[in-house]
Computed example of a mutant assay.
Amino acid sequence: MELGEIEAFLTLAEELHFGRTAARLHMSQSRVSQLIRSLERQAGGPLFERTSRRVALTALGEQFRESAAPAYKGLRDALTRARETSRTMSGELRVGYLPSLGGAPLTDIADAFRRAHPGCAVTLRQITMTGLARAWNGEVDIQATLLPVDEPGLTVGPALGTYERLLAVADDHPLAAAGQVRLEDLADYHLPAMPPGIPPALHDSYWPARTPSGRPIPRITVHGTYREALHLVARGRIVLPTDSGTARFRRYPGVAWLPIADMPPARAVLTWRTAAENARIHAFARLTAGMVQPRPQVRGGTLP
């Protein structure tokens, strides 16, 4: 049963005239008749008596109208409320972000959004790379993340910034004297094996399995937090590809941050589920596009 059939039935029950019903619904009389016949087949009997002179409800039609009218009104009211909610700036906007993307410009955008839309609360929630799948499945409304993003059903929105690719090494590491490294250098040292759950495209863009010439890049299992991984970096046990956004928040004694010369900059963007987009998401995205201007990359060794 379709809403169009119910709408045609209730309108005809009010007008008792196919021509006037068709005019109100902006459709042909034949289409109205088709909808009524379909509904009568589902109801199991005629809902209207039709003659060349008059149209009248049958007893079955009267019974059906008494039940269908309030249900139809309830559905229309629910749809109207949903549309109003999607158009207004009330409610809450949940914004997730990777740890390396905390602070400006995201906090500045959130503050500007609150000033522009005081009726809408904005909450910021830190999401790790292993939690991105949950974030995109409804844990937050918008997720600030890093490219690439190739999960289906997502909209990639405006940019938040770019970050230089860095390699964290011990400050007395053989690579540290060179001032920068290349991807080919990674085959000679151990990287940490990353935990499961990181989107594959994002994982491979940060921690490739092989160098450009095809040499495998060895891994060792590291248990614990990111800070504990940096402890192993400082001891010379591992090297860690990262970016200047992460390095900004993860300063650690005994660790040097070397630019990776042949890796493109990391690009941060807003993402959201396409099926769940609404006026709040669009307003936040427009504000981001207007506030974020191209900036020089934060360079290794000169981090604030």
Rank of each mutant, 00 (worst) to 15 (best):
F64Y: 09
R115C: 03
R114V: 10
E2P: 02
V169A: 15
T80I: 09
G96E: 07
L106H: 00
V55K: 08
A201C: 05
G19D: 05
P152Q: 04
F249Q: 06
L166Q: 07
R210T: 13
G91F: 04
R76L: 14
G102V: 06
A229M: 15
D262L: 09
R87V: 04
G290V: 03
A82C: 07
T21H: 02
D172V: 11
S86R: 13
R65Y: 03
P259C: 02
A116I: 00
E164G: 13
Q180T: 09
A178V: 02
K73P: 00
G197T: 09
V222G: 08
R286F: 00
N137W: 02
P158I: 07
R81G: 07
G4K: 13
G197N: 05
P195W: 10
E66R: 15
T123S: 15
M1F: 11
R87M: 11
A178K: 12
M1K: 03
Q180F: 08
F113P: 08
I260A: 08
P99Y: 06
F9G: 08
A177V: 11
S33T: 13
L160E: 00
L146E: 07
T145E: 05
D77T: 10
M1N: 05
V292A: 01
S67V: 14
A209S: 03
L175S: 06
A209R: 05
S213G: 02
F64W: 13
T58F: 06
L146Y: 02
R54S: 15
V140Q: 06
F113K: 02
P148S: 09
D171T: 05
P192L: 01
Y226M: 08
L147H: 01
G45H: 01
L16R: 15
T130H: 07
R251E: 09
G44E: 13
Q126V: 11
P196M: 02
F48S: 06
R237N: 04
L10C: 10
G300L: 07
A266H: 01
A256D: 11
I220R: 15
L160S: 00
Q297R: 05
S30N: 12
A82W: 08
A261L: 03
I198T: 08
T123H: 06
R50S: 08
T211I: 03
S244R: 06
S30V: 11
L146P: 07
R83E: 14
R182V: 07
P212W: 00
